[in-house]
Design a protein around this nucleic acid. Structure first.
Lengths: 199, 199
DNA sequence: TTTAATATTAACCAAATGGTTAAACCAATT
DNA sequence: AATTGGTTTAACCATTTGGTTAATATTAAA
């Protein structure tokens, strides 16, 4: 069963595919129009300009990179439980949209990226940091540096996706094999987290 | 004392600055010519095409992302020592060229990146992997998954640079403060490595 | 000093690119 | 049937872009 899409939806879908894969500079309005099977003028009719269309896509997709899992985290008591949940949810999420990390990194590192950076939801990072500070105070986990640890946690989860083309090439992984490897990574990272944090 | 550069050197220097900051798609030949204070035709006179010039820059700069520190590693016996050396050297190196990680990630994740991926020197990763396997065999370190650990090690070192614009924005770090934070990170990462690896 | 090779410049070019426009189309209202 | 409003199209436009060319300047060899 295929859902009939209206023109605006067709554009958004096509724009996502083109922008996410090629970045802003590497994307062409004509390519988006072709992909959506519509006239190029429609892009401007619905979204005014390339920049406006890109911003719309970025705002939508960035939520996959800074996921909303705080609601579920609130119910968990310790930082370790929260970290576990984060790793699990995050890797599963990115596995569904493996190009999003690159898309975000690409966008925020360009000149004039200030506009996009300001749009990022950073409450997740803050709530993780707060929980980490609290548990250190309580002596539940080792006296590590919260900010440095959070950076490590994010890096261990997201970095492999940014390096995926290299890993795939040098170990001859296909998409599925790489994805499976990341699922296995969840358990391994949970071990690392315990080794680092538990006294 | 300023060294007098010939035209070819001026081009290479300007091309590096433009390409590294803006990526291939975001860079303009005219911008490189302006930066080098030369006529745009000189770019083609010396390097034929934009692609050729970019490949030249990539080959040179990529060595900063896959550094040659194997010669020094060879003299170290355990994987832990090698990992220590890697973290130390790597973070110091990237601190001098903080945009290189983005440049590499940007390049290898684009469509048609196969050409560039094939140029990457991967012997460092292999030698680290081999040393890790060996030490696990000997029982010197815990029974972790070598490939997953190496990915973590790389991610913990390089990922912060890719997220730097976000961290700088949300914590109001300037370049120096961020750089200092990464230097402090070296000691912290060495601790994490021990927590994870030592039985 | 002539000659030949290399280096540099300004002007030019075709293709691509983001964006616009005016006319046509189409569905719903009157 | 005529009107109205939103939607779609083809053709068009100005600018930018990577790249070329032919003429000129510079250097070094003969």
């Amino acid at each position: 069963m295929t859902i009939a899409l209206n023109t605006e939806e067709k554009i958004l879908l096509a724009a996502e595919e083109i922008f996410v894969l090629n970045g802003y500079d590497g994307s062409r309005m004509q390519a988006i129009a072709d992909r959506a099977n519509i006239n190029k003028a429609m892009l401007h009719y619905y979204f005014r300009s390339k920049e406006k269309l890109f911003e719309r896509i970025f705002e939508e997709k960035v939520l996959h990179f800074f996921p909303k899992i705080e609601e579920d985290m609130v119910h968990l008591n310790t930082f370790l439980e929260k970290a576990d949940l984060f790793v699990e949810r995050y890797i599963h999420l990115i596995n569904q949209y493996p190009y999003i990390p690159f898309f975000v990194v690409n966008t925020i590192n360009k000149p004039n990226s200030q506009v996009f950076i300001e749009k990022l939801p950073l409450s997740l990072k803050r709530s993780l940091l707060a929980a980490l500070y609290a548990d250190i105070e309580k002596g539940l986990i080792k006296d590590i540096q919260p900010f440095q640890f959070i950076m490590s946690l994010l890096g261990m989860c997201a970095f492999p996706y940014l390096m995926a083309p290299i890993f795939k090439h040098s170990f001859r992984f296909n998409d599925t094999e790489f994805s499976d490897l990341m699922i296995l990574r969840i358990a391994e990272l949970k071990r690392y987290i315990r080794f680092i944090l538990l006294p």
